[in-house]
């Protein structure tokens, strides 16, 4: 750990659990809450309209440590935030006789867009200073507004659509392309053109070893392009602070850079590497970086493995035909 507080803080675990959810007073099935993934999914087929959600929370604090330590007026606060709507809903939790803290956090659909984050902070008076942050939940929860499955979003969007006749008119200009990678917005999207004959069926299909091997090569090619596009977008979108230093991004850009920078500039720490790619982009040297970016993207797309498997399968197929 490379961070220090100017006063003693809790070292024990702080765990947060969502025990129940109500939408407009009606309880949500427990299957929409995943304690394992720490995700709540609020989208329900039967109930697309709701205004108010209520999360019942239970928090376990290291009570013994708290009791023995230098902390007074301990408060336990849950906060639900979403950066894209600048929303912040909080709830003070109360300590029950059973030894945990509980309470309900209410928030409104109108104040949120897609994904809110729920966490818990413990505040206390330390050395006479009130309201000091002395602990936070080990892991935060995710509240998904548009998901039906309470699972962490792990991959980017893959959107199968007919570029010529789909609802996104802008795709019409790409109607002869098999796929397009879009890197704006909340999550990058790979648009697969169902109007491109055979493509989507082939990608979704099963088939003989050779067919599978070719599919692997095709998928690797799409993925490598996607990773390259995402890397370029993530670097291009970097926000700088007043002194021109790039700020570490959030969301998918964070994931992409963390995944690829160690392969792009392996001898630099990840923060030095970010600074370096930013300088290369703004002050020259970007071209020289391209092979490194392609290499990093190919590693993410497992291109070497997929091509090797593909070639092997095809040569075996040729041999058996003889």
């Amino acid at each position: 750990m490379n961070t220090v507080f100017p006063y003693p803080v809790l070292t024990g675990d702080i765990t947060l659990e969502v025990t129940a959810v109500k939408l407009d007073g009606r309880p949500l099935p427990l299957s929409m809450i995943s304690r394992d993934h720490k995700v709540v999914a609020l989208h329900e087929v039967e109930r697309s309209r709701w205004d108010e959600a209520r999360l019942d929370l239970r928090v376990v604090l290291p009570e013994k440590e708290l009791a023995d330590g230098p902390w007074d007026d301990v408060a336990c606060l849950a906060a639900l935030t979403e950066a894209s709507t600048n929303a912040r809903a909080t709830a003070r939790l109360r300590r029950s006789d059973a030894g945990w803290w509980s309470g309900s956090l209410v928030f409104h659909r109108d104040a949120h867009l897609t994904r809110a984050s729920l966490t818990v902070a413990v505040a206390a008076t330390v050395d006479g200073e009130s309201g000091r942050l002395v602990g936070m939940a080990e892991e935060s929860w995710i509240v998904e507004l548009d998901e039906r499955i309470p699972a962490r979003k792990q991959e980017l969007n893959i959107h199968e659509t007919d570029f010529r006749n789909g609802s996104e008119t802008w795709l019409q200009t790409f109607q002869d392309a098999p796929w397009v990678v879009e890197t704006t917005g909340d999550m990058p999207t790979v648009h697969l053109n169902t109007g491109f004959e055979g493509l989507v069926d082939f990608l979704n299909g099963g088939g003989a070893p050779v067919e599978r091997a070719v599919r692997g090569m095709l998928a690797a090619q799409i993925a490598a392009e996607a990773w390259t596009a995402m890397f370029n977008a993530a670097v291009g979108d970097l926000e700088c602070d007043d002194e021109g230093r790039p700020q570490w991004p959030t969301g998918w850009r964070d994931g992409v850079l963390r995944s690829m920078l160690p392969d792009v500039l392996p001898d630099l720490s990840i923060s030095d590497a970010l600074m370096e790619v930013h300088l290369r982009l703004t002050e020259g040297g970007w071209q020289e970086l391209q092979p490194r970016i392609q290499y990093a993207a190919a590693r993410r797309a497992k291109t070497p493995k997929n091509i090797a498997n593909g070639l092997r399968a095809m040569s075996r197929d040729v041999e058996t035909e003889r």
């Binding site: 906060a79 002194e243 230093r245 700020q247 570490w248 959030t250 923060s271």
Partner: peptide
């Protein structure tokens, strides 16, 4: 000194 490099981890934290 500008271009000092970036700081990592939790750039957006609720607390």
């Amino acid at each position: 000194r500008s271009n000092e490099g970036v700081s990592l981890d939790k750039t957006y934290s609720p607390f």
